[in-house]
């Protein structure tokens, strides 16, 4: 019955991850489409509402994610070069970046939530349609992105553990590679979210 281990196919595993990434892009694609339509319809409201977002935190998070994408890529090279210590350090930096991102988000979201500026509140319902839609899309898109970031971080924690245990090594590192690919996706989506939400003013 157990013929799972019949053959190892790293190329196949990576192909599977790439196709999965296509689906993720299309998942966000639906949201980008709604964003485009609504921004076209409520241009002025979107402009005004986006002034409420903290561009500094947004920019900081962009930099943090770009750095983390770089370190995760470097960790793969380190594993290929059998440098377990360096790979561990680089993966820890990546995960630290993930934590920084989440802490930033905590303050950013926390600020809005303390103002009761989130979907479903009385304050929200009293705003103009364009404002409601902008803030709803903001929470929806960044929330879904954050969920992906957490999933990506969990994959990288698993990869880190396996690097420490020697299960990910210079001959067998497709899990780390796929985790890295997924992490780049998280980064890439943020690269689009940041200008659309923070810089449209």
């Amino acid at each position: 019955m157990d013929h799972i281990e019949m053959q190892r196919d790293d190329v196949g595993a990576k192909l599977g991850m790439w196709v999965f990434i296509f689906t993720e892009i299309l998942l966000f694609g639906g949201l980008f489409l709604v964003y485009a339509v609504m921004r076209h319809r409520y241009t002025a409201d979107f402009h005004q509402a986006s002034l409420q977002l903290n561009t500094f935190i947004g920019a900081l998070n962009t930099v943090v994610l770009l750095i983390s994408s770089m370190t995760v890529a470097m960790s793969i090279t380190a594993v290929q070069k059998k440098d377990k210590r360096m790979a561990t350090i680089l993966l820890c930096i990546t995960l630290l970046c993930a934590v920084i991102f989440l802490v930033d988000k905590y303050f950013e979201w926390g600020h809005k939530i303390s103002m009761t500026l989130y979907p479903g509140t009385d304050l929200m319902q009293s705003l103009k349609h364009g404002y409601i839609l902008f803030f709803s899309l903001y929470f929806f898109m960044t929330g879904l992105h954050m969920l992906h970031l957490v999933i990506g971080a969990v994959i990288l924690v698993i990869a880190l553990t396996k690097v420490r245990m020697g299960l990910i090594n210079d001959e067998h590192y497709v899990l780390l590679e796929n985790g890295g690919l997924y992490w780049h996706l998280v980064d890439l989506i943020w690269i689009f979210l940041f200008p659309l939400l923070y810089l449209v003013t």
């Binding site: 196709v19 296509f22 689906t23 993720e24 299309l26 998942l27 966000f28 694609g29 639906g30 949201l31 709604v34 609504m38 979907p119 479903g120 929200m124 319902q125 349609h129 409601i132 839609l133 709803s136 929806f140 879904l144």
Partner: peptide, 25 residues
């Protein structure tokens, strides 16, 4: 399956969000 299904996935999530928070998509 791979290229079309995610679009319905996100659309269904928007229906849920709209019902829960009266967003107005």
């Amino acid at each position: 399956q791979v290229l079309a299904t995610p679009v319905i996935g996100i659309t269904l999530l928007m229906i849920i969000a709209e019902r829960m928070f009266h967003i107005g998509f």
